[in-house]
């Protein structure tokens, strides 16, 4: 998983390059006389491999390729998803701090807390005797387009 901004930028750069290479590879296969169905099958493994990177990028950037920002449902999903990511991020930071502090009972913990599960965070934080509270505020409701147009006309 992508764990920080540096890795994120590297992944974005890599993905762009991979897409270019995939297209070039496709051209070579077509020139070699493979049919379009054969080219597809030959490229499927690379496409699947590449899709993982794409999803890791989507996950880190907080947006999902499967959701469209146009629908209010998907917007709500993104808001909740980001809040959950933020809570996990705070839990991960607390866990890293615990490891740095060499807290007894956490000797076996390794510094890999990205995407940490709630259960594991609870175990680590319990060893620290820490209670973590996470909260987020919903921004003021965005007026509907019709209401904005009415206001503009006033």
């Amino acid at each position: 998983m992508i764990r920080n901004e540096t890795e994120y930028q590297e992944a974005v750069r890599r993905l762009a390059e991979e897409k270019e290479r995939l297209e070039a590879h496709k051209e070579r296969l077509l020139e070699a006389g493979l049919s379009s169905a054969e080219v597809k099958r030959a490229l499927d493994p690379l496409r699947s491999f590449q899709a993982q990177l794409e999803e890791e990028i989507d996950c880190y950037s907080g947006s999902s390729a499967a959701t469209s920002p146009r629908s209010s449902t998907s917007t709500a999903r993104r808001v909740v998803g980001r809040a959950a990511d933020r809570a996990r991020h705070h839990a991960a930071r607390a866990c890293r701090a615990a490891r740095c502090a060499r807290v007894p009972g956490l000797a076996d913990e390794r510094n890999d807390y990205h995407g940490i599960t709630v259960e594991r965070a609870e175990r680590v934080l319990a060893a620290l005797d820490v209670q973590m509270n996470s909260s987020f505020d919903l921004a003021a409701r965005v007026p509907s387009r019709a209401r904005r147009q009415r206001r503009a006309g006033e």
Binding site: R21, P45, L46, S48, Q50, E55, D58, S64
Partner: peptide, 28 residues
Amino acid sequence: GDPKRQLPMWHSYHVELYPHVGQLSGIT
């Protein structure tokens, strides 16, 4: 619980095996 989708082989056996036909992986 996983942000990544997985191929059927992963769902069946938790393996990801890729055929190597001389292509580059995209990893540097």
